[in-house]
C-alpha cells in the first residue's frame, strides 16, 4: 500500500530537470485544451504528450499502472455513448432493439480518448517530479490564494504534514481494523445498523489516536518556535532558458488550439 503512494521515477532527462512550476502550468494548460478541443487539437496534444514521454524515457508499464484504476468508469462512459446516441446505425445493427450508430462510436471514442489523455498527462507530471519539488512548485503557484485569506506557505506546510502522516494513518487504520476483528467486529456482512456500528468501531479509535498525535505534533512544533507565515527555502526555484522555451511552446500550442 505504501508503495502505491509513490509514483516518482527519478531520472536525469530534460523533462525531469524542468522547473516544477513550468511542468504544472504545462499540464494544466494541456488538460484544459484537451477538454475543449476538436479531434485535430486532440491529435496535437497527443503528439506533444507522446513526445514528452519519449524524451523522459518513462517505461510504458508505469503509465499503464496509472491507467488501471480509471478504466471501469471510462468503459462505462464509452458504452453509454455507444448504445444511446441516435444516428445512422452501424451494420449489422440494429439487432432487435439494440443499435450502435456511427455517431455513437465516434463520440464514445473521442470522449474516452480525451479522458485517457488527461490522466496520462497528469501521470507524466508526477512520474518525473519529486513530491518535494511539486510541493514547492505548488506553493509558488498558489500565492494568489492570499486574496481569499489562505497563505500558500501554510498550505505547503500542511501538504508536507499530510504527506508525512498518510503512511502512518494507513498503518494505524489497518491495525485498528485487525484489532476490532479480533474482538469480533463484523465488517463484511449484516444490515446497515451493523455496518454503522462497525464503521464507528473503526473511526472512533482512529480519530482519538490522531487527535493525540496532533497535540504531540503541535507541542513539538511550538517548542521549536514554529511560526505560521513566510519562510525561506534551502533551494529557491529559478527559471532557466529551457523553462522559458517550454512556456513559449505551451503558449503557442494554446493559441493554435484556440484558433482551430
Amino acid at each position: 500500500m505504501y508503495n502505491n503512494l509513490r509514483q516518482y521515477l527519478p531520472g536525469e532527462s530534460p523533462v525531469h530537470r524542468r522547473d516544477p512550476r513550468v511542468k504544472i502550468i504545462a499540464v494544466v494548460a494541456l488538460s484544459l485544451i484537451t477538454l475543449h478541443t476538436n479531434p485535430v487539437g486532440l491529435a496535437l496534444v497527443f503528439v506533444v504528450v507522446a513526445g514528452v514521454i519519449l524524451v523522459a524515457q518513462i517505461p510504458p508499464v508505469s503509465l499503464l499502472t496509472t491507467l488501471k484504476p480509471v478504466m471501469p468508469l471510462f468503459i462505462l462512459l464509452f458504452l453509454l455513448h455507444l448504445f444511446f446516441t441516435p444516428g445512422t446505425p452501424l451494420p449489422p445493427f440494429p439487432i432487435g432493439l439494440v443499435s450502435i450508430t456511427y455517431e455513437g462510436l465516434y463520440q464514445g471514442l473521442f470522449l474516452v480518448g480525451k479522458f485517457l489523455l488527461l490522466v496520462v498527462a497528469a501521470s507524466v507530471l508526477t512520474l518525473t517530479t519529486s513530491p518535494s519539488e511539486l510541493t514547492m512548485g505548488m506553493e509558488r503557484l498558489l500565492r494568489p490564494l492570499r486574496f481569499v485569506g489562505i497563505s500558500s506557505h501554510d498550505l505547503a506546510m500542511m501538504l508536507s504534514l499530510a504527506l508525512r502522516f498518510m503512511p502512518i494513518l494507513l498503518e494505524e487504520s489497518s491495525n485498528i481494523k485487525e484489532a476490532q476483528l479480533a474482538r469480533g467486529a463484523v465488517f463484511n456482512s449484516g444490515g446497515p445498523l451493523k455496518k454503522a456500528r462497525a464503521i464507528s468501531s473503526l473511526v472512533i479509535p482512529l480519530s482519538t489516536g490522531i487527535f493525540r498525535r496532533c497535540e504531540e505534533l503541535i507541542n513539538a512544533m511550538e517548542a521549536r518556535g514554529y511560526q505560521p507565515g513566510p519562510r525561506t527555502y534551502l533551494k529557491e526555484l529559478t527559471f532557466d532558458p529551457g523553462d522559458y522555451l517550454v512556456l513559449a511552446v505551451v503558449l503557442l500550442i494554446t493559441v493554435v488550439a484556440v484558433l482551430l
Binding site: P69, V120, A122
Partner: peptide, 21 residues
C-alpha cells in the same frame, strides 16, 4: 492538492490534475 500532486488518493485510486478537470 495531495491528489493533484499525483498521490492516488481520489476515489478508486485515481490521481492528477486530469481528474479535477
Amino acid at each position: 492538492l495531495l491528489g493533484v500532486m499525483g498521490l492516488p488518493v481520489f476515489a478508486g485510486g485515481k490521481a492528477g490534475v486530469g481528474v479535477l478537470f
